[in-house]
Simulated assay, not measured.
Amino acid sequence: MFVSQSGIAVTAKGPARRGATTRGLAVQTHVVGALLMRELHTRFGRDNIGYLWAVFEPGLLALAVTLLHLAASSRTGFGMDPIPFWVVGYTPFCMFRFMVLRAEAAIESNRTLLYHRMVTITDLLIARNLLEFASAAMAMAILVGGAWLCGLGNLPDRPLLMFAGMAQLWWLSFGLSLIVAAASENSTVVQRIIHPATYVSLPLSGAFFLLKWIPHPWREYLTWSPLISPFEQIREGQFASFDSAYVYPTYVIGWSLVLTILGLVAIRITRRRMHLD
């Protein structure tokens, strides 16, 4: 608001308001970027292979699980090579699991940063979760690319479709991580159950199977899980020979939107009750 020469108070509108929004967005972008670099350095440091652990951690887990499945069975069906099949299933699940699991300690481990007015709990979680997305995507690219170079698999046939599935899974995981972070700050019970809960979600996620393999009526029950659709879509992106009838992006986006709104409200309530002393 400013006062004109005639003494009438005038409220800033239009370009001025948009300019303030743009500046605020730029500031928060810099904050998230700084938090991301801090998280990268704090978690992986410079010892041994340093930042490469960001890629090797999910990559080694996905590789180990892939080898176990290959030892059990080397067939998947639908013209899909087994190594890329397992890799593009378990690596995104690692992203989901790490985002939700590490949200439990996100506030406690970064409490001192909240003394800075520009840093919010949401910024902390966005930075952490962007790191998880980048780590999982790079690990998946390296493993799938390695399988292709060795003649054991193909590169993604529809990469944009795969990226869309990863983005939906990330948003869903982000919304859930907001709720977990707020709940963990207010209850020790959540801290106890979140770890086993992520393991329980594995057989319900679609990371290791296609819905086509599941008999009726269990297939219909599984379609209610919002985790299923992103994994089906990711495999559609990897394999041109596979088209799923169980990809529901609107359903997943609806879940993600509701979880994000509930999470933001929970974070706001939690921040008001927090004592930084």
Rank of each mutant, 00 (worst) to 15 (best):
G175V: 02
L176I: 12
L176E: 00
S177M: 00
S177D: 01
S177H: 03
L178W: 03
L178H: 04
L178D: 04
I179Q: 01
V180F: 00
A181V: 14
A182S: 15
A182N: 11
A182C: 09
A183T: 12
A183V: 02
S184R: 08
E185S: 11
N186C: 11
N186E: 14
N186F: 03
N186M: 11
S187M: 09
S187P: 00
V189K: 07
V189Q: 14
V190M: 12
Q191W: 00
Q191V: 10
R192F: 10
I193G: 10
I193F: 08
I194F: 02
I194Y: 02
I194Q: 03
I194E: 01
H195K: 13
P196C: 11
A197P: 03
T198H: 05
Y199Q: 14
Y199D: 15
Y199E: 15
V200K: 10
V200P: 02
V200M: 13
S201C: 14
S201Y: 03
S201L: 15
L202C: 13
L204V: 09
S205T: 10
G206E: 10
G206W: 05
A207D: 08
A207L: 09
A207G: 02
A207W: 06
A207C: 10
A207R: 00
F208T: 14
L210V: 13
L210C: 10
L211W: 08
L211S: 07
K212S: 15
W213P: 00
W213Y: 11
W213M: 12
I214Y: 02
I214V: 15
P215G: 04
P215E: 06
H216A: 15
W218S: 10
W218L: 15
W218F: 12
R219N: 14
R219K: 12
E220I: 11
E220K: 06
Y221H: 01
L222H: 04
L222A: 14
L222M: 15
L222W: 08
L222E: 03
T223G: 07
T223D: 09
W224G: 08
W224Q: 08
W224N: 09
S225C: 11
P226S: 09
L227S: 04
L227K: 05
I228D: 04
I228V: 14
P230D: 12
P230C: 09
F231H: 13
E232N: 10
E232M: 12
Q233R: 06
Q233N: 08
I234Y: 01
I234A: 02
R235G: 00
R235P: 02
R235C: 02
E236V: 02
E236M: 12
G237I: 07
G237A: 05
G237K: 00
G237Y: 01
Q238R: 05
Q238G: 05
Q238E: 15
Q238C: 07
F239C: 08
F239K: 02
F239H: 06
A240D: 05
S241R: 07
F242A: 08
F242W: 05
D243P: 00
D243F: 07
D243K: 06
S244V: 14
S244H: 04
A245Y: 06
A245W: 08
A245K: 09
Y246M: 10
Y246Q: 11
Y246G: 04
Y246I: 10
V247T: 07
V247H: 04
